[in-house]
Amino acid sequence: MKQSAATRWMLIGFQILLALFVLLPFFWMLSVSLKPATEPFAIPARLWPQAPTLENYVTAFRPEFRTYFMNSMIVSGASVLITVSLGLLAAYSFTRGRLLVITALMGLVVLAQMFPHSAIIIPFYKLMRSADLLNTYASLILAYVSVTLPVAVWMLRGFLQKLPVSLEEAAAIDGAAPLRIFWEIVVPLARPGIIATAVYVLIVTWQEFLFALSFTSTKEMRTLPVGLNDFIGQYGIRYGELMASSVMVSVPVIAVFFFLQRYFVAGLTAGAVKG
């Protein structure tokens, strides 16, 4: 569409406002995290620190923070691996299986993605308690795999449906075993879908809060979101350290997202727009 010059400038103005609305909080988080403890951060002081320093980062990177980071990496990493593997197997069956039961089961998988976590957490907690798994990585990984699987299956199925069946049929005629067809033809072709799904699971599990808060009870097992929430009480209004920790928690997911966003956006919008 062609716009008149005046309209165009107005739209550019809106775009700048939009960018400000989104970026101002980020800018401030970064600015406060770089402020030395001696410099007051209340405005009418300045928006950007006079003498930026990394001292808040050094203080915030204390041993407990490192433990939380490690825990988050282990729990998210394992969840990504397991969810994507199981999701791919299931999605393949859902696209290639021909029985009516399978279509009905796919309906149940889609339905499960809408279950409220807060409404299932008490029986889930009791299951973990009777299995003696509370306050372990296993309890969180089980929870994360279960709650991310429905969307993962749905995303991967969207990708697999677009793959031509003819390749698999040709390989079958040549006598390739079904498992080999899956491993050597389907998995490599599904790579963009696998990446998109992995990014989704990472974003969800890296920030998951409700299960982590309910299932972990000691500092040794806390993940980053819960640890960060504990800091609010401990740090009081030492916002410099709080913001430095926040930046360190956010950078890994933001980095992964920006490198892989085209896969993720394609995976998300393909399903959501086409139904």
Binding site: A90, L127, P178
Partner: peptide, 29 residues
Amino acid sequence: QRLVWAFLAPTLLLLGVFLYYPMIGTVIE
């Protein structure tokens, strides 16, 4: 078809035990 079910089994088991059972469990609770 047996392979179809083998591929589906882990997902169905997890969703059954950790999502569908707790839904019912909440009502009982």
